[in-house]
Amino acid sequence: MHTLTTGPWTPVALSADLPVGTVIPARIPAGSIALWRSESGRLSASADRCPHRGMSLSHGFVRGENLSCIYHGWSYARSGQCIRIPAHPGLEPPETIRAKTFTVEEVGGVIWVATDEATTAPPAFEGLAPLRSMTTTAGIAAIEAAAGAKASAEGLVVPVGDTLCLLVSTRDDGQTLIHVLVTGAASAEARIGASRAAESLRRAAEAVQKENAA
């Protein structure tokens, strides 16, 4: 088991994959979350479950500064407080209707969510720029074997002979989330090459995983 020293922080997604006015699903050790960015650009993370009927909020939609559930349109503010129930337009939703929220930070194009009270900032990776995220059925040990390199305390794997880095984190569903990072100065051609190299590394890691399981 790898103990990563990112404290309460999990790197859940890349900033570029969450434009303003959208919501996406993500996972932290506490479970599934709805990660969303308001029209004005403010990031939020809430439990991925509408308190009304249990519908996944990441299937919902963002209007203005609020997240709405797709099922009945109940809207939630960044605080998690329910602010609107379309079936009862005149009703001010009671304070007890709220979705659990989490602390969220964006550093160098990576979005981090904290499970507990965060006393430190999430790590920053100087000189590296995010390229893409991918998930794999391979565990971190298999990724390390395929890359020929060990993960740093912050979860960074720098494969031998490649010009890319992998920021890895284990998810509660047994999959591993990988954020592929490249040097900030890389050209478009180099980035396409890095994306293909990352695909190859994933294939190799999954082969290792399969072999170890057999």
Binding site: S32, D48, P51, R53, I85, A87, H88, T96
Partner: peptide
């Protein structure tokens, strides 16, 4: 919708989901 409600079972515990009128 039905395939994305959590939990899949229908909760009968009144604390689990919040109904309105």
């Amino acid at each position: 919708i039905l395939e994305n409600q959590i939990p899949r079972l229908l909760p009968l515990d009144p604390g689990m989901e919040i109904p309105t009128r």
